[in-house]
Design a protein around this nucleic acid. Sequence first.
DNA 1: CCTTGAACCTGCGGGC
DNA 2: TGCCCGCAGGTTCAAG
Length: 273
Amino acid sequence: MPELPEVETVCRSLRPHLLGRRILRVEVRQPRLRAPVAPDLPARLEGRTITAIHRRAKYILIDLDGDAVWLFHLGMSGKLICAGKGKERRKHDHIVAALDDGGELRYHDPRRFGLSVAVSRAELKTLPLLSRLGPDPMERRFNGAALYAATRASARRIRDLLLDQQVVAGLGNIYANEILFRVGIRPTARARRLTRRQAAAIAAMTPKLLRDAIRWCGTSFSDYRDADDQRGEFQNHLRVYDRHGESCRVCPNTIKRVVIGNRSAFYCPSCQK
DNA sequence: CCTTGAACCTGCGGGC
DNA sequence: TGCCCGCAGGTTCAAG
């Protein structure tokens, strides 16, 4: 479900509910996520107060007093929902935290591809999950030169390179495809065939498109929702993703779907070369 | 080292 | 109505 714009939207919607709140109790109802939830997770969180919420790529980091950080990755179907205590538990509510204002924070994830970890600040710095990530797309160190360097000697297709979180951290299949449409490059193009100019165009378009998607609160393609259960609106601005068989928005051609790297890629055969 | 494909899960929509 | 198939916003690991 969630790529960088959706994760950023979730962070923003969490803050009004969570900042300054104390965590009273954490219940792990299903520990079997992508990585098993550690048995000591509740003990590391209970009694602590939430001081800040940030995002790194597709990870959500909740800072607590007393040197603790609560980290989430939403996988494909994960949601963080803030709810009043009266609301009944739903199937797949795997982690439920009770807050000092009577509210709750729930981690809900039918497919269980997400994960949740509680660590100290020192442990956070050494977490392989985060230390393996490349630059966020909004950082200055992600630029045309860096992307061009990553494309050299790469036999991979450019769509797959953009999904590699070590190259740039935060893109997923929707935005990788949308970026490539907007710069006129086919997702199937071999990375090493790109020119310096094309790499620069992709690197410039990436933060631009992501900011635009954040402005629309992300893409609610099927089930993505923020912490208030609100939909995003960027699905109304997609030009190629999941539009195969439909007509291109800028030319008379039909959008095509191909499978590369085991995942669908979408493009317009005449707008993208 | 690099690249590809399968695996991890559940749910939904389409075709029959 | 029900069953089977393919597909899904992500990541990791094994095999070649």
